[in-house]
Simulated assay, not measured.
Amino acid sequence: KYRTVSYGKILIYSDFVIIASALLVGMGISAVIYGYVMTAVVGYTVDMIMAGSQQSSQVFIVTHDYEKMAQAIVDNVHRGVTLIDSQGWYSKKESKIVMVVCRKRETAMILKFVKTIDPEAFMTVGSVMGVYGKGFQAIGKG
């Protein structure tokens, strides 16, 4: 029900208060520092496990032959592609950027595939959360 709540952060914040109170009952500073480190590791791990199935990548590909690249990704990788109008500032040439949103585990395959089509393509990969629509998470009713 509360998908935007980070369970790891809730765990970290509540445990930080509990561990800080250990100083009031006479625990040593080394035990408190150890507790903080362990809490941070556990909280981060919980967030990674909870969000693992939802992690996706957004790949921007700048290439001269964007039509061939887009068609090849659709045909071989079976992912949707969006073309975004662009203009190189240095060259002043208009072109298109190929954008692909995929699961995190598919990113390496797409990067290798792009390299086989155009070894000089410029690519950026960004991590995105909450991808909704066909092929990803269904849009909630709110």
Rank of each mutant, 00 (worst) to 15 (best):
residue 54 Q to S: 08
residue 133 G to E: 13
residue 115 K to H: 15
residue 108 A to R: 14
residue 76 N to E: 15
residue 48 M to W: 00
residue 98 V to K: 07
residue 47 D to K: 02
residue 3 R to W: 04
residue 62 V to R: 05
residue 71 Q to G: 12
residue 46 V to H: 03
residue 35 G to I: 01
residue 58 Q to E: 11
residue 38 M to S: 00
residue 134 K to D: 14
residue 91 S to F: 01
residue 128 V to P: 13
residue 116 T to L: 02
residue 21 S to R: 11
residue 73 I to G: 04
residue 56 S to Q: 07
residue 25 V to K: 01
residue 131 V to F: 04
residue 89 W to S: 13
residue 79 R to A: 08
residue 115 K to F: 05
residue 118 D to G: 01
residue 44 Y to R: 00
residue 133 G to L: 12
residue 45 T to P: 03
residue 93 K to S: 11
residue 51 A to R: 04
residue 86 S to F: 06
residue 79 R to F: 07
residue 16 F to K: 00
residue 74 V to C: 03
residue 10 I to N: 07
residue 64 H to F: 00
residue 53 S to G: 12
residue 46 V to F: 02
residue 117 I to T: 05
residue 106 E to S: 08
residue 4 T to C: 02
residue 44 Y to S: 05
residue 111 L to K: 15
residue 42 V to R: 05
residue 129 M to T: 03
residue 113 F to L: 07
residue 3 R to E: 11
residue 104 K to A: 08
residue 48 M to F: 06
residue 46 V to D: 12
residue 27 M to A: 11
residue 127 S to W: 07
residue 27 M to R: 09
residue 42 V to E: 10
residue 132 Y to T: 08
residue 95 S to D: 15
residue 67 E to Y: 04
residue 89 W to R: 11
residue 106 E to T: 00
residue 67 E to A: 00
residue 102 C to Q: 04
residue 128 V to L: 12
residue 98 V to Q: 03
residue 138 A to F: 11
residue 108 A to W: 15
residue 52 G to R: 08
residue 17 V to M: 15
residue 74 V to R: 10
residue 7 Y to P: 08
residue 55 Q to W: 07
residue 120 E to K: 02
residue 6 S to Q: 09
residue 17 V to E: 14
residue 134 K to Y: 07
residue 126 G to A: 12
residue 119 P to K: 07
residue 62 V to N: 12
residue 134 K to E: 14
residue 42 V to H: 10
residue 103 R to H: 13
residue 49 I to K: 00
residue 90 Y to A: 10
residue 93 K to N: 10
residue 115 K to Y: 15
residue 45 T to Q: 01
residue 17 V to Q: 00
residue 40 A to T: 13
residue 55 Q to F: 01
residue 136 F to K: 03
residue 36 Y to G: 13
residue 80 G to T: 01
residue 45 T to A: 13
residue 66 Y to T: 04
residue 24 L to K: 01
residue 117 I to W: 10
residue 87 Q to E: 15
residue 106 E to H: 12
residue 61 I to M: 07
residue 89 W to H: 07
residue 120 E to A: 14
residue 117 I to E: 15
residue 44 Y to D: 09
residue 11 L to F: 11
residue 76 N to Q: 15
residue 137 Q to M: 12
residue 37 V to L: 02
residue 104 K to Y: 13
residue 98 V to T: 13
residue 26 G to A: 14
residue 135 G to N: 14
residue 103 R to L: 06
residue 66 Y to E: 09
residue 92 K to V: 00
residue 137 Q to I: 10
residue 16 F to E: 08
residue 66 Y to Q: 06
residue 127 S to H: 11
residue 111 L to P: 08
residue 86 S to D: 14
residue 85 D to F: 02
residue 87 Q to V: 07
residue 113 F to T: 09
residue 103 R to T: 02
residue 78 H to N: 09
residue 62 V to Q: 12
residue 12 I to K: 01
residue 38 M to A: 03
residue 35 G to V: 02
residue 132 Y to W: 14
residue 63 T to A: 06
residue 92 K to P: 04
residue 27 M to H: 06
residue 41 V to M: 09
residue 89 W to F: 08
residue 79 R to C: 11
residue 113 F to S: 09
residue 19 I to R: 07
